[in-house]
Amino acid sequence: MAFMTLREAVADTVRDGCSIAFEGFTHLIPHAAAHEVMRQGMSDLTLIRMTPDIVYDQFVGLGRVKKMIFSYAGNPGVGLLRRVRDAAENSWPKPIEIEEHSHAAMANAYEAGAAGLPCAMFRGYLGAGLKEVNPNIKSVICPFTGEDLAAVPALKPDVTFIHAQRADRAGNVLLEGIVGIQKEAVLAARKAVVTVEEIVDDLSAHPNMTVLPHWTVHAVCKVPGGAHPSYVHGMYDRDNAAYLEWDKIAADRQAFADWMEEHVMRASSDDFAKRIKGLERAAS
């Protein structure tokens, strides 16, 4: 583990053509990290995420994505992802490969990656159409009961990015609230980068809170507000208006390009701290 700026951590870990997971289940979405990758220009990416929302809409709209592996591609609480739709329906700005799963499959596949297994098996996809269109959904017969179970390959991203509440000065990371799939996504990856709201002397963690030891992560970067417009449990609320506005911005190719230029390309990760003004929770 090394403390780095986000710019250094992205330059150090991400290459053209690599596979990246930016995980976060509505909560703790690593927006700042995703924007840094967009700014540094890496392309031909395989993006993995259970719930690709507006950050993947942005990557796809910029034409940086070769393939997307996912289980629910929507704007939570709002509707569809308009840049993803434009790529899937009109191949604009270019076609994307899609490997589509269910949540259960993705969760099991990350867990298999973390557990060092080649594949995951579970009871799933019964009667489901995805089995017909995704060649990575296969089946195995239980050697003890004969039950036909679904099997999917383990997910092992080249790099996983997550956002968390805090790290201590050794780089141990604390996550609390809706912890989603982040622990599995970190432990499944070849390298993991964690952005945090703050760095503290003592994590003061309850023994069962999710702590990732410093030696499981490649880099820790302090980026206050780095989840915005997603939220950080106990620290700031979700910017629901931003999700609603995204629906309008992403509906138009030019409006999208203009917005990305102003708010991503000509911005920096330091700008996130001011984006959460007015959304902060009082310290408890």
Binding site: F70, S71, Y72, A73, G74, L80, S102, H103
Partner: peptide, 9 residues
């Protein structure tokens, strides 16, 4: 293109 199944299957 709709969002997909998520947890539903």
């Amino acid at each position: 293109r709709l969002p997909g199944g998520g947890g539903a299957p």
